[in-house]
Design a protein around this nucleic acid. Structure first.
Lengths: 254, 254
DNA sequence: GTCAATACTTTGTCCTGACAAACTCACATG
DNA sequence: CATGTGAGTTTGTCAGGACAAAGTATTGAC
């Protein structure tokens, strides 16, 4: 059997880097590496070329290569060991956690979401909401109540409060898009959030709306999200039918 | 009123850095900055000294300062804006997510945890567990069932599977310590995990063990955790009394 | 043969220097 | 007064070099 070609040659070519692109070089390298790993061209357990050689071969400096590798290490794809090298440990990115909306998740899972806007108005924030958003008591916020369907069945009853000035919302927008998508379009990128996930039994009204029996288990989630500037973007208090939904999280600890 | 001293002087002194220490300089700077922010000496909204001046004043290079600041940016304490500066946005670290055990959480909340070990034996892994741990079907694992109390009341029923060779467990250890603490002591640092959180109603047996009524809502969590080297450490399938427990998560998106 | 010392490889830390890009603000211009 | 132009500030990217620390493999002594 012929021996494998030496790993030092590697499938990453200098020609793939575009120095005229506004995309940083380190990011180009990281993206390309990620592709190769996801495509299986560099398998789990394989060691990638060492930093110095890789830098020399691609014609970039070692710090640039280090930054690219660091990026993938933080995502859990690679592991570096001093004196040993850098190894692939997982074939796909494990995002530290997905800060996305239910709507986006359902779309990507092809579960055909539909949204019914039950309420959309400006009201003074209840004390609990004001505290969560770090706003003075009684500040007005946009209050939203939505019923989210998936595959024709009700899935979740969602309540949100959004500080005025963050975004102007129309019922038609909310019916057609996820809240996070609308926020992003308005230039707000949620970056930090605190969530509390719990469970309780459905009351009569909730059960009726969600087409569950009274007393059925519901998943509850309350979340407050901030943008990169520390500005509170959204408070949400949602209930999900536990029979149809669960939260999936990928965690990584420094 | 006397004006505040200019921010450019700042409370960070060159003398505080120890070049003989094995602790990297960038980490010394980051730790000290974090202390100052947590102590409120640099308040939320304040801008910290710019990188070039700070580097000059502390007698280190700009990349070192950048690395220190980057460290705190990733933790959500600071925000950088090109052309503007670096600002404090949160007075305490928001850890991306806590990869810790229930036991540790209860201890720090002073809720006096107690653990009853119901089962501890080596068994062939059920198909579902083997898949989660990425082990060949039927591989033997240590199987644990524990009942966790807090404040004298039952709180959670926990099932765990741990690959042989990761750690040798005694019932007495498990009764006195959290699983994650024992893993860390054995030199295993969980770094990446996937969790699924859901809810369902208690069956008769579960209800009896957990001192709930039949049909009460329970929170469910299944988790698989890996160490930095990509080695599977633990599979867990737990149920919590929803009336007494909820998950709190701090998320951050790149 | 076993084991310890040594050489080598590879990542970790740190430095200096340079230019680019984004933002702020004062100022000139219409 | 409004507006945009340009200078100044600050972070973002990148280069290239140097030495330290950790792990691996080889070599040598016993």
């Amino acid at each position: 059997m012929a021996p494998d070609p030496p790993a030092s040659r590697g499938p990453l070519r200098p020609a793939e880097l575009d120095r005229t692109s506004p995309v940083p070089l380190y990011f180009q390298v990281a993206s390309r590496l990620q592709e190769l790993i996801e495509a299986g061209e560099i398998g789990v357990g394989d060691r990638i070329e060492n930093e110095v050689d890789l830098a020399g071969r691609l014609g970039v400096s070692r710090p640039t290569i280090r930054r690219a590798i660091q990026y993938l290490v933080e995502r859990g794809m690679l592991v570096r060991k001093r004196g040993v090298g850098t190894q692939v440990v997982h074939p796909k990115v494990r995002r530290p956690v997905e800060l996305s909306s239910l709507y986006d998740d359902l779309v990507s899972a092809d579960r055909k979401p539909r949204t019914e806007v039950l309420r959309l108005e400006v009201v003074p924030a209840p004390a609990e909401v004001a505290t969560a958003l770090e706003l003075p008591d009684g500040t007005e916020v946009t209050w939203i109540e939505r019923l989210r369907y998936a595959g024709g069945e009700p899935l979740a009853l969602m309540h949100n409060a959004i500080p005025l000035g963050v975004i102007h919302l129309e019922a038609s927008d909310l019916a057609a898009h996820g809240l996070y998508e609308l926020l992003r379009r308005a230039g707000h990128q949620p970056r930090i959030a605190t969530q509390v996930i719990g469970a309780r039994s459905a009351g009569a009204a909730e059960a009726r709306i969600l087409a569950e029996k009274r007393g059925a288990s519901l998943l509850t989630m309350t979340r407050t999200a901030w943008d990169a500037g520390g500005r509170a973007l959204e408070y949400g208090s949602h209930v999900y039918r536990a029979s149809r939904y669960s939260f999936e999280l990928n965690l990584s600890a420094g």
